[in-house]
Computed example of a mutant assay.
Amino acid sequence: MEPLIQPILQTDAVRLRPFAAKDAALIRDASVDALIPSITSVPSHGTEDEILAFIRRQHDRLRLRTGYSFAIADAHSDVAMGQIGLWLRDADRGRVSIGYWVGSRHRRHGIASAALAAISDWGLTLPGVHRVELYVEPANEGSWRVAERCGFLREGLLRGWQEIGSRRRDMYMYSRLE
């Protein structure tokens, strides 16, 4: 089976593009964040080899056809500021999901909103996709406010939905339809 082809999604604020070795500094910073390593595949306190392996895994998602992992980069400087992915686990049922994080130095500047709007709009154009989903911890008000700004509706609370660290956590379910 052919690998997926990853586009570059450009807005006035952000460029969603494949990760590159030049993005290692962002991954290094994220690896020491209090939350990012516990809810993503970013290595905790990652070594240089682990950080480069993380970047390779993002590219492998295309080969494995599991989804699209984008670096969220500044539209003008191309400096990476975060990660956003569109995951295809339930694409055969018309549903895809999105996950994202923004590096601590780049938060509260509208970056997550710009990236989420861009990837959601694009994801809903993929053949057979009619629903985009997000899962957000109730305590993560910043993230669920981003979702709501981008047209996602909160559908309910999924109790014990996801393991984070060593504990099962409740998650808000958000969706946006075509």
Rank of each mutant, 00 (worst) to 15 (best):
M1S: 14
I5A: 14
I5L: 12
Q6D: 01
Q6E: 03
P7Y: 00
T11G: 05
D12H: 09
V14Q: 06
V14P: 09
R15K: 15
L16R: 02
L16M: 03
R17N: 03
K22F: 00
D23V: 10
A24W: 07
A25G: 09
I27K: 13
A30V: 12
A30H: 13
V32K: 15
V32W: 13
D33I: 12
I36P: 08
V42S: 07
S44N: 13
G46N: 13
D49C: 05
E50M: 15
I55E: 07
Q58Y: 01
H59D: 11
R61E: 11
L62R: 13
L62W: 11
L64F: 10
G67N: 12
I72M: 13
H76T: 14
V79A: 14
A80H: 06
A80N: 08
M81T: 09
I84M: 10
G85C: 07
G94R: 10
G94A: 13
V96Q: 05
S97M: 01
I98C: 02
W101M: 14
W101Q: 13
V102I: 15
G103F: 05
R107M: 09
H109I: 02
I111E: 08
S113M: 10
A114D: 08
L116F: 01
A117I: 04
I119N: 00
I119M: 00
D121R: 14
W122L: 00
W122S: 01
W122E: 02
G123A: 01
L124V: 06
L124W: 03
P127F: 03
P127D: 10
P127W: 03
G128Y: 01
V129E: 03
V129N: 03
R131Y: 04
R131W: 04
V132Y: 01
Y135P: 04
Y135R: 15
V136C: 04
N140F: 03
N140E: 06
E141W: 05
F152A: 04
L153W: 03
R154P: 05
G156T: 12
R159V: 13
R159D: 04
I164D: 00
I164L: 02
G165T: 08
R168I: 09
R168F: 09
R169V: 01
M171Y: 00
S175F: 01
L177T: 14
